[in-house]
Structure formats: structure tokens, C-alpha cells
């Protein structure tokens, strides 16, 4: 009796595994023709989901095919999904886009937000740190506690680290008494606002959005420095989509993105419009990433 139970259990478990491994065949077939995209989870994920589900509807209407958005949990997961062909299109940051395109031959950056040509990172500080807004790099941040955003973020990691190394000639771990990675821009703001970290680096768009939403008390946390502009977010597409859909598909997707005029859609990014982009626009990001050894030569 007990033996039988044990065997039944094992057989059931194996059957379950087999079922999952083969992966509900009908579902897989339906997915084969679906155009799938993802985005880096740089902020409020509930908002991201709403935003990108709307984008999926829009693209689906414009392209006349089924389009689906799948959410991922990290920058690396977005790059991996793109690399593995789980998604065909992605809304990447500067650094994640560079990484993704170097891993997938034939992939191209097709569009960026109008604001992404000249994106900025804000260095923010808690009032008690005594740091004041300045036009030049605030060298007094040395010795304070500091938090980046996500490890794979352009605005929350790559660019601030670049400027720290450039100006202080040392690695962040040597410059600051503590270096943390908050995970995302909203958490960076929360952690500096509470003084848990004295200084942080944050995506300027997220800062402005939260400021508008009344989530920031400027008597506690304020911007002390703005980085020079750099190129950031962009839409990147895999080259092999033209095999699945017909030739010229990349341009059709690109045009659909550039023709997005719906203010509500654009505001949700928030971007004023999308403009053409190319791989070479992101060469500066690639150079910086190589310089601080976040990517290999």
C-alpha cells in the first residue's frame, strides 16, 4: 500500500515534469507566431505593465499581428530573454542595449525617446550630509555612504560610476564608506530621503516624475549635481524577425514606433516622442562601459 503510494507519487511527478518539459503543445504553437517584447524594469512595475500592454495593443493594430508584452524582473533577465529569442523586441537602457546587441548578431537599435538623446543622472543627497547643489562634480561626496540603483542600470550605475572614477580617480568602494545597490530608482530616492544612504544616483526622469507626484520632500533630499548628457533608452529589435515575418519587418516596427502620437501613451514613458536611433548612437555608452570594465573588450 505504502509502496504503491510512493510509486504513484513518483510517476505523477515524472508525468508532471514531462508535461511541463514538452510544454503544453497547443500553447507553444500559438506563441510561435506571436511578436513578443519586453522592457527593463527600471521603475514602478505595475505602471510598466499598464504602459506596455497598451503598447502591445498599439503595435498589434499597426502591424496587424499578435503582439505580447512579457514582464521581467531584472535588466539581466531582459537581456537574456532577448538573447535567447524569447522576445524579439525590447525597450532597453543604454547599457543593457549595448550588451544585448553585442550578444545577438544582426540586432539593431531602431528608436529612442526624444529625451534619450541627452539623458541625465542626478546625484542626490540627504540634507544632513551638508552637501549643497553645485555645477561641478561634488568631490565632497568622498567618504559618505552612497547607493547606486540597479547594478545593470545606465543612469543608476554606469554613468554615475564613470563620473566618480573620472573625478576622484578611485573605484566607488574606495571613495565611499559604504556602497549599496538599491535595486531601482524609486528605492534610491526612498533610501536617500530617509538618510539610510547619504548620497545616491538616480535617473532624472524618475526623479522629476516622483517630484511631481509629491513623493519627494525637498527639505530632506535634493539634487546636488547633474551629469553631462548621454544617450540612454532605446528600442532594439532582433535581426532574425525578418525570417519569421517578411522582409522589411524591422522598418515596419520602427515606423510604428516613430508614428506613435498618442499623448497618453507617450506620457506613460514619459517621452515627448520617439525618434530614429542607430547602434552607433550608443558608441559612447559602450566606450564608457569598457573603460570601467563593466563589459569586456
Amino acid at each position: 500500500m505504502k509502496t504503491r503510494r510512493l510509486y504513484t507519487g513518483f510517476v505523477v511527478a515524472l508525468a508532471a515534469l514531462a508535461w511541463v518539459a514538452i510544454g503544453n503543445p497547443t500553447a507553444a504553437n500559438a506563441q510561435a507566431k506571436e511578436f513578443v517584447f519586453t522592457a527593463i524594469p527600471d521603475q514602478d512595475e505595475t505602471q510598466l505593465r499598464k504602459r506596455f500592454n497598451k503598447i502591445a495593443d498599439y503595435l498589434s493594430k499597426e502591424l496587424g499581428i499578435k503582439v505580447k508584452y512579457i514582464p521581467v524582473k531584472s535588466y539581466a533577465a531582459a537581456v537574456t530573454a532577448f538573447r535567447n529569442g524569447e522576445v524579439h523586441l525590447a525597450w532597453f537602457g543604454g547599457l543593457s542595449g549595448v550588451r544585448a546587441r553585442s550578444l545577438v548578431d544582426g540586432s539593431v537599435a531602431i528608436a529612442q525617446g526624444f529625451e534619450d538623446k541627452s539623458f541625465e543622472t542626478y546625484f542626490i543627497a540627504h540634507a544632513s550630509s551638508g552637501l549643497k547643489p553645485a555645477d561641478s562634480f561634488p568631490k565632497e561626496i568622498a567618504g559618505k555612504t552612497f547607493t547606486f540603483g540597479s547594478k545593470g542600470s545606465t543612469s543608476g550605475r554606469l554613468m554615475p560610476e564613470f563620473h566618480i572614477r573620472e573625478n576622484l580617480k578611485k573605484a566607488p568602494e574606495e571613495v565611499f564608506s559604504k556602497v549599496g545597490f538599491s535595486g531601482n530608482h524609486s528605492k534610491t530616492i526612498a533610501l536617500v530621503q530617509s538618510g539610510a544612504y547619504q548620497v545616491g544616483a538616480v535617473n532624472f526622469k524618475v526623479w522629476e516624475k516622483e517630484l511631481k507626484a509629491g513623493k519627494i520632500d525637498e527639505s530632506k533630499v535634493q539634487v546636488i549635481w547633474r551629469t553631462p548628457p548621454y544617450p540612454d533608452y532605446q528600442w532594439t529589435i532582433r535581426g532574425d524577425v525578418e525570417k519569421t515575418w517578411q522582409a522589411g519587418f524591422v522598418d515596419r516596427v520602427k515606423n510604428a514606433l516613430l508614428n506613435m502620437k498618442d499623448k497618453e501613451l507617450l506620457d506613460s514613458f514619459p517621452r515627448s516622442s520617439f525618434i530614429p536611433a542607430s547602434n552607433s548612437d550608443y558608441q559612447p555608452i559602450k566606450d564608457v562601459a569598457k573603460e570601467i570594465k563593466l563589459i569586456d573588450d
Partner: peptide, 21 residues
């Protein structure tokens, strides 16, 4: 516990994966 900035082995694993290394 990377959020705390404690450089344990797991912290470095997490960094390596974030860098796709």
C-alpha cells in the same frame, strides 16, 4: 542581501549575472 552593500560571495554572483558574465 546586496541592497545592504555587503560584498558576500552571493553579492559577487549577483553582480556577475547582472553583467552577463
Amino acid at each position: 542581501l546586496g541592497i545592504l552593500g555587503i560584498a558576500t560571495l552571493g553579492f559577487f554572483v549577483d553582480s556577475a549575472i547582472a553583467d552577463i558574465r
